[in-house]
């Protein structure tokens, strides 16, 4: 359960709407089941009351939607066409990093946004729940530190929330909100998490094992492009993966080369800009651990060029569009890698 409730957020949003400060709200919308919460746009208090929800399944990072929502149409932002009011967005700590990163890249207009930081107590991964509870989920609710599951075949059960916490929350890098106009609940601290442990484990394997590991993972990819579409760092208007001339436009990978091409380029494209928000892995219907590719880049960048957290502050220069005259040579990187092996 979250300390901050749905009602509190609706109340806040309604207050801002009634004051005339905001015109619409970017939030989380109830799905058919308690656990399939999706991002949603709300235009009125009634809509909020009917569909808004904040809970253990409000994992979606909403920042990316600001790009389209504040887009300029003939010199006027969409939300400004009807009104002078802003768009309200709710930000969990990890979302606030993406928010800053998008600002750094000038992808939306800060003036048109009112950001409310929301305290986060960790999100639940429904896939983990399914693994424990089996098929036939009837309902999933959370109360306190437990997840209460009703199932068709295996009866009802209580699972400790800690056991079904989303991967990104197990390794939460920061409970600190790095951007907001107003805060609901408390903001925490940057956490010294173990998020690179898994990357290290893979690094320690032999090349053959690594190859087999990734071959196994990447061959599951159906190229639905969800990882790209959900990623707050992937906001180019023209993407090589939409270009019919590239040979790898929206279609399933023809062979293992195309799988690797897609994944290397996707991860590389966000290298240095990825805030490690974990959206790619979360949305992947094939449960491919994409965050392990991103984290490899983050880990390398930290080791080669000094610690860097994308989105920690607005305006910081991403490491791959920066340099110093004494950077390591690509060859040296490998020599160093041998020492670790």
């Amino acid at each position: 359960m979250q300390k901050i409730t749905t009602e509190q957020l609706i109340e806040k949003a309604a207050e801002l709407m009634n004051e005339g400060k905001v015109a619409s709200v970017l939030g989380w919308e109830k799905g058919e089941f308690g656990y399939d919460v999706t991002p949603g746009i709300f235009g009125s208090v009634d809509e909020l009351k009917a569909k808004f929800v904040y809970g253990d399944f409000s994992a979606a990072n909403l920042s990316k939607y600001l790009v389209k929502k504040t887009e300029m149409v003939q010199g006027q932002a969409l939300v400004f066409l009807k009104t002078e009011r802003k768009i309200l967005i709710f930000l969990k700590p990890c979302d606030s990093y993406s928010f800053n990163q998008l600002l750094t890249e000038h992808r939306f207009d800060r003036e048109k946004v009112y950001a409310v930081g929301v305290q986060c107590d960790g999100m639940v991964d429904i896939e983990k729940v399914k693994k424990i509870a089996g098929d036939g989920l009837l309902s999933v609710d959370t109360s306190g530190n437990d997840v209460v599951v009703k199932t068709l075949y295996n009866g009802d059960m209580k699972i400790a929330k800690a056991d079904v916490l989303a991967e990104r929350c197990v390794n939460c890098k920061s409970k600190k909100h790095v951007a907001y106009d107003e805060l609901l609940g408390e903001t925490g601290e940057v956490i010294d998490s173990n998020r690179f442990d898994e990357v290290e484990r893979i690094e320690k394997m032999t090349p053959d094992e690594r190859f087999a590991f990734w071959q196994n993972e990447l061959s599951k990819c159906i190229r639905c492009n969800a990882c790209r579409d959900a990623c707050p760092a992937c906001t180019c208007e023209k993407c090589v993966f939409d270009n019919p001339k590239s040979g790898v436009e929206n279609k399933s990978p023809a062979n293992s080369f195309e799988e690797k091409l897609f994944h290397i380029i996707r991860a590389y494209h966000v290298a240095g800009r990825c805030t490690d928000c974990g959206e790619c892995s979360r949305v992947c219907p094939q449960n491919i651990p994409l965050h392990l590719l991103n984290r490899k880049f983050i880990k390398d960048i930290n080791e080669f060029y000094g610690d860097y957290q994308a989105g920690a502050e607005v305006g910081s220069r991403a490491p791959l569009v920066d340099y110093t005259v004494n950077d390591v040579e690509p060859g040296e990187v490998f020599d160093r890698g041998d020492e670790n092996a």
Partner: peptide, 30 residues
């Protein structure tokens, strides 16, 4: 002026990623 400094960073990270995926690192060089 600075093109190859960017190359250096890009290739260091890219080659390291290829290595991470189990692709022989000796096949790439700067």
């Amino acid at each position: 002026t600075s093109g190859n400094y960017y190359t250096r960073r890009r290739m260091a990270t890219l080659f390291s990623m290829l290595d991470y995926l189990g692709i022989e690192k000796e096949r790439t060089r700067v």
